[in-house]
Structures are given as structure tokens and as C-alpha cells.
Design a protein around this nucleic acid. Structure first.
Length: 319
RNA sequence: GUGGGUGUAGUUCAGUUGGUUAGAAUGCCAGAUUGUGGCUCUGGAGGUCGUGGGUUCGAGACCCACCACUCACC
């Protein structure tokens, strides 16, 4: 699919099968048979968004397992131990992702705690072959975003995550936050906008200086029959595709389109809840997104990214 | 042929001693989904209550006839 890096999740791997087992298997690369780069998210987001009844304290977060209800405690040092056991190429610092909307006082408290945790992560992190990225927070408050960008930059991480965005706030607000904080982040290091992946956000993010993204959108919408195309979204579940024997997108070089699977057949698979539907649409959505980013990189090289955005908008890709 | 049972949404079924606009599940139609998940979630359309009579102020419910399906017996 042209994918160069794979994301894995610390929280989920800690729950099952457990980081000790992954370490025993020789690390994530060997375990998953993926020899390209891997990034592990710290599990900070999951602890706040998934785990029930979590208690945030200065030293860490207490939460209950979704699998068996057992109490666990995540703190910067323990998360670093897990991430080093997993052995990804990039490990994310353990942070606190404030929900949207949040009061400024709470966003500030979460941000400051994230800064202290980032420092503890840095001190606890020892693997030379693994890069540790800090994460900028600050909710939707421009002053906090700028402060967070400065503080983390001073800590001198090899790369930076931009967290706490794409959590329900309006897109223009997210774009504004990116514009505010980006001047304070080193442009020679990767700046990674966490959790963003819709076609319009990818291009808008790139325009504002983002170098990396990750997102579940491509696979999540694929599970429900929604395909991304150059001409906008296509809900393949819809009756309109019942007798449509064309591929998902004419000219697409993804596995599904190149293999000749038709919209009508994929719609049939979706209606039957056959997993192959999700697999085919996922392959398409990811390849579509990779091609979009290839276009972004080309446009940057040719210094015509703004025109590229206009072309995408005109084709209906962002609808 | 005789006796019994069942006919309510596309499907499987609920529906109180007869009482206002006949419900559910599933399917169908459409929308949502942004630091992965493994459960999706939210709306909407859809019924001459087998057919025809009768009783009643009022019948999906009660009575009669017929039709269909089904079980048992001959």
C-alpha cells in the first residue's frame, strides 16, 4: 500500500497479549513480521477515552481493565518500560489528553502535568535504538499551545506529537491551533499530528507544517462500507451500487480495484457482514490516502501545495 | 374424509377481561465514524391484523362460513 510505518498501541498490547510476551517474541517487529518502522502510542489516550473510572493523579493514572476489570496503574516510568519492551522505532511519551471542550484551567493543569510526565519519560527512557517523541497539549487555547510547544522544544526530543486535537472540536479551531503552535516547533524534526486522517485534514495539516499523521478513520469507515475516492466518499452499502459493476474507483492502483472487485460485489459483502468487505475497502482507503500524501509531497517539492488543495477541493475529494 | 392447531410489517413473532394512533426483533432505506477496533451508533420507510359476513357504542381479539398452511387419525 506504500505504507512506511505502522502504529501499535501500548495500552492494548499491555492488556493483551502483554508486553512481556512481545519482548519474549523478540519485540514487535519480529512478533508482527513487520520489518519497516513501527511507532507505539503511549496508551495515554486510551486510558482516558476507553478505560472506565480512571483516577488521574500527579504520579500517573489508575484505571480498570476493559477485559477483566482489574485495576492497573500507568505512570511515565511504567509506560516507558512497556514501550521499550515492545521495541518500536518511535515511542510516544505518556501524556494527558484533555477532552473537548475543557475549561482553560483544566486544559492548563493537564498540559503542565503532561510536561512533567514528558520529563519523567525522557529520564526513564534508555534505548538508544528507539526515538522518544514528546507530546504537545494545551486544549484549544492558543496561549497554552504556544507555551506547550516551547516547553517541549526546550526538552529537545527527536520529534513531537501534537495531541489533544481532533477530539471533537471544529476543524477551523484545530487549524488555528496548528498555525499558532507550529512556529515554536523545530521544523527540522518530525511534527506528528495525532489521530488525524480525513483527506481534508491531511492536506490542511500538511499546509500548516505537519509531517506525520495516524488515523483509524480509513479502517473504521471501511468496516461500515464507506470508501474514500478522489471524488468524495462513497457509501458502498447504498442501494445505488447494487448493480454497479465498476471498481471502487476507476484508475486506482489498490489491491481491491486492481483485482477487479466490483462495487456491487463489495456492497453484497458489506450487507452480508463479510469481513472481506472491510479488508477490501480498508486496502483501498489506505492506498487512496497514501496516494493523496504522495501528491502532497510532490506538491511541496514543486512548491504548489495551495494549488494542490484547490485541485482536491474542486474534484470533490473533501466533500 | 374426520378431529385439532395456526393465519398480525419482507421474515420470525408479541398484542392483557373486546377500548384511543396495532408493537418488538430482524431485514430494507439513509446518515454518522479522526491518538484504532473487534459491539458499531443514529434516524426513516413499511401492516385492507387470511377472506367474507355477524354480534357490539366499539373487534386483531367474540360468533359463523370459506380459504391457506400444519399435526394426528382413518
Amino acid at each position: 500500500t506504500g505504507t512506511q510505518i505502522c502504529l501499535a498501541n501500548t495500552y492494548h498490547l499491555f492488556e493483551r497479549p502483554g508486553h512481556a510476551l512481545v519482548r519474549e517474541a523478540g519485540g514487535l517487529h519480529a512478533f508482527m513480521r513487520w520489518d519497516k518502522p513501527i511507532l507505539t502510542d503511549s496508551g495515554g489516550f486510551q486510558v482516558f477515552s476507553l478505560a472506565v473510572a480512571n483516577k488521574i493523579r500527579e504520579d500517573g493514572v489508575e484505571f480498570r481493565s476493559l477485559l477483566d476489570g482489574k485495576k492497573h496503574f500507568f505512570m511515565p516510568e511504567s509506560v516507558m518500560e512497556i514501550e521499550q519492551a515492545l521495541g518500536a522505532d518511535i515511542a510516544m511519551a505518556f501524556d494527558e489528553c484533555a477532552p473537548w471542550p475543557s475549561e482553560e484551567s483544566y486544559a492548563r493543569a493537564a498540559m503542565n502535568r503532561t510536561h512533567r510526565w514528558a520529563m519523567r519519560c525522557k529520564e526513564a527512557h534508555a534505548r538508544e535504538d528507539q526515538a522518544l517523541f514528546g507530546i504537545v497539549q494545551g486544549g484549544t487555547y492558543r496561549d497554552l499551545r504556544i507555551e506547550s510547544a516551547k516547553v517541549l522544544t526546550d526538552m529537545d526530543f527527536p520529534g513531537y506529537g501534537i495531541g489533544g486535537l481532533s477530539v471533537g472540536e471544529p476543524k477551523p479551531l484545530m487549524y488555528e491551533m496548528l498555525e499558532e503552535m507550529m512556529p515554536y516547533m523545530p521544523k527540522e524534526k518530525p511534527r506528528y499530528l495525532m489521530g488525524v486522517g480525513s483527506p481534508d485534514c491531511l492536506v490542511e495539516g500538511a499546509i500548516r507544517g505537519v509531517d506525520m499523521f495516524d488515523c483509524v478513520l480509513q479502517t473504521r469507515i471501511a468496516r461500515n462500507g464507506l470508501a474514500l475516492t478522489s471524488f468524495g466518499k462513497r457509501m458502498l452499502r447504498n442501494a445505488a451500487f447494487e448493480r454497479d459493476f465498476a471498481p471502487i474507483e476507476e484508475g486506482c492502483d489498490c489491491y481491491a480495484c486492481q483485482s477487479g472487485f466490483t462495487r456491487a460485489y463489495i456492497r453484497h459483502l458489506v450487507k452480508c457482514k463479510e469481513i472481506l468487505a472491510a479488508q477490501l475497502i480498508t486496502a483501498h482507503n489506505i492506498r487512496f490516502s497514501q496516494r493523496l500524501m504522495e501528491g502532497v509531497r510532490r506538491a511541496i517539492a514543486e512548491d504548489r501545495l495551495i494549488d494542490f488543495r484547490r485541485e482536491c477541493m474542486d474534484s470533490g475529494m473533501f466533500d
